[in-house]
């Protein structure tokens, strides 16, 4: 028995959003009497962190603390329109819509504050702790709770804003095939180190080294976790997960339920090392591109290339099972 080591790499360019028939998302924002800003969306947070990221976008734009922002991902029957949470589009599309809505609301907030302070709205700024104050004269200030009370009970105004990001439908140029189907692309490269047991055919992924260029990491901790969680999923697709070849033809063999569906557990995780590069995208919210689905992509071909490097077996069908390795080794020896 020999343990063969190998290293391989793969790169991915990943589009943010889709062409569809146009790819819009909308956001509405309004201030409550207590001075909170409620963002209404029909976009869904299913664990990817959309609510956190859009709350950051709103807080930054409004100049208010995160604690003053409530994200209400209500319901597709009643919320502002969103195409959905897919195609790594949430941060980009919804983030942009939220920024636009928050800008409009900020303008009203400053106008109401200006009336209360009897100054010009153009001379006001936010301090990030909940106050609007006069530039150069910070003691002339008013708290957001007093601004919303004044808006609702004295001035008769809503502090609110509307936002939309629309990526219009794009058609290819017939002569060249050229088109602009997405708004920007994120880029990544993964280097995988593997060990192949030439007797059992078992592949162990020892390490994944990831580099991601994602415009701007709006939330660096979540971006890093997305990369490593996606890396884990890539390993899982590469060497474990399959319902084939028995599904759907026959359920007599192979996994019939999730008790038997193989996924790596905590003991099978490789060492991961990740670097995030930031080159702000001109049309992204604060420069961000999408970093969703792409994180599970590059690890798979990188592992396939590392297996080839380790033992000369070129595999093109996932998952890279011990059986496929052993058959490949037999073919090389024949």
């Amino acid at each position: 028995m020999t343990l063969l080591r190998g290293r391989g790499y793969a790169s991915v360019n990943y589009p943010t959003g889709m062409n569809l028939g146009g790819d819009p998302s909308q956001a509405l924002i309004h201030a409550t009497t207590m001075g909170a800003f409620v963002i209404s969306l029909s976009s869904v947070d299913l664990g990817q962190g959309l609510k956190t990221v859009v709350a950051q976008c709103a807080a930054e734009t409004l100049g208010m603390p995160m604690a003053n922002v409530i994200v209400d991902t209500a319901d597709t029957d009643t919320g502002p329109h969103c195409m959905g949470t897919f195609a790594s589009r949430g941060t980009h599309r919804v983030g942009n819509a939220v920024i636009m809505a928050a800008r409009e609301a900020r303008d009203v907030m400053l106008a109401v504050a200006a009336d209360e302070l009897e100054v010009d709205a153009g001379d006001l700024e936010t301090d990030g702790t909940g106050f609007v104050r006069l530039k150069g004269s910070p003691e002339t200030r008013i708290h957001i709770q007093d601004i919303t009370l004044a808006a609702h009970f004295k001035q008769g105004k809503t502090i609110s804003g509307r936002g939309i990001f629309l990526k219009e439908r794009n058609y290819p140029v017939p002569e060249t095939g050229e088109m602009d189907p997405d708004s920007c692309q994120a880029h990544a490269c993964t280097v995988a180190d593997v060990e192949v047991d030439d007797e059992t055919g078992v592949v162990t992924v020892l390490g994944l080294h990831n580099t991601y260029e994602i415009g701007r990491a709006l939330n660096p901790a979540m971006a890093a976790q997305q990369v490593e969680g996606g890396g884990w999923m890539g390993v899982s697709h590469a060497i474990f997960e399959s319902t084939e070849p028995y599904y759907p033809a026959s359920r007599d063999h192979g996994p019939v339920d999730f008790c038997e569906y193989l996924m790596p557990g905590p003991a099978e995780i490789p060492v991961q090392e990740s670097v995030i590069l930031e080159r702000p995208a001109s049309n992204g919210p604060f420069g961000a591109k999408g970093i969703g689905e792409m994180t599970a992509n590059a690890p798979i071909p990188a592992i396939a290339n590392a297996i080839f490097d380790a033992c000369g077996v070129r595999l093109t069908t996932m998952p890279f099972t011990p059986e496929s390795i052993l058959r490949g080794l037999d073919a090389l020896r024949a």
Partner: peptide
């Protein structure tokens, strides 16, 4: 670390890649 891996081997996580949990 091995004992932690063992203790959570019946708990599936689909998001984090386990490392932060361990």
């Amino acid at each position: 670390r091995d004992e932690v891996n063992e203790a959570i081997s019946g708990n599936v996580c689909r998001c984090t890649g386990y490392e932060p949990i361990v």
